[in-house]
């Protein structure tokens, strides 16, 4: 057997459960051991990344991780990157009625929380313009997922019932001092301000001026300044 055949057979045997241990020259039980180890790593990494969903759906969780393991063998060397297709996987489950829409949103929430936690933090030094936190992620939910999660954290027990159906805009950004993610529910105007900051670089004064124009004078300079200060307090703007 050459190396090419050996590798191809390993992948088939590990991820597609082909009974090819003997072809690889391995005892069946030992090859099965490796298959279990690898699936175990996969399941444990997914459970760590989706602690709430795995708790909420304890029964299908093992089955889901097995299906996901076969449908999306990992291509990235970083173990945590294996979760990046999990949202797509859950969306497919939603389309066939196996999961609820809010569970798909919970996946998006948990995945983004992790991505913000590990994102590189690089800011433009000596910049005179307002800068968005480089780790910032803004999510749009049909349900109040952050309120639901907050309740879970506060009560210290698994999520119960369903989240409230309420359109929710959520900003997640990492506090560079504590290195922990900060979660902020965004009013629509704050969301618009963030979107503007994503597209233009302006000094604080010019930004305030342009927001006032945009709001056709409804917001006063003080209102806008207070909003910017609040975005800074939440580490959304630096």
């Amino acid at each position: 057997m050459n190396l090419e055949q050996y590798q191809k057979s390993l992948v088939q045997g590990i991820y597609h459960k082909e009974d090819n241990a003997l072809e690889l020259g391995f005892p069946r039980d030992r090859f099965q051991m490796y298959r279990s180890f690898i699936h175990g790593h996969y399941q444990s990494a997914l459970t760590k990344m989706f602690p709430r969903l795995s708790e909420l759906r304890k029964i299908p969780w093992i089955q889901w991780s097995q299906e996901y393991y076969q449908d999306y063998p990992p291509h990235a060397y970083e173990l945590n990157d294996l979760a990046k297709n999990f949202h797509e996987f859950m969306n497919k489950k939603y389309e066939v009625g196996e999961v609820k829409d809010y569970e798909v949103e919970l996946v998006q929430y948990e995945l983004t929380e992790f991505q913000v936690f590990r994102a590189p933090f690089e800011v433009e030094k000596d910049s005179l313009s307002l800068q968005l936190n480089p780790t910032l992620a803004v999510l749009e939910f049909a349900y109040d997922i952050p309120g639901w999660v907050y309740h879970w954290e506060r009560e210290g027990q698994a999520l119960q019932g369903e989240p409230v159906r309420e359109k929710t805009l959520l900003a997640i950004a990492r506090n560079p001092e504590t290195e922990l993610p900060v979660f902020t529910k965004l009013p629509l105007m704050d969301y618009i301000m963030i979107k503007m900051l994503e597209s233009v670089k302006l000094s604080e004064d010019l930004f305030i001026e342009s927001i006032q124009k945009e709001s056709e004078g409804i917001l006063s300079l003080e209102d806008i300044q207070a909003k910017i200060n609040n975005l800074k307090k939440q580490w959304i703007v630096l």
Partner: peptide
Amino acid sequence: SSAKEIQFHD
């Protein structure tokens, strides 16, 4: 630890 660009994470 990988083969044919698939990771084993083992």
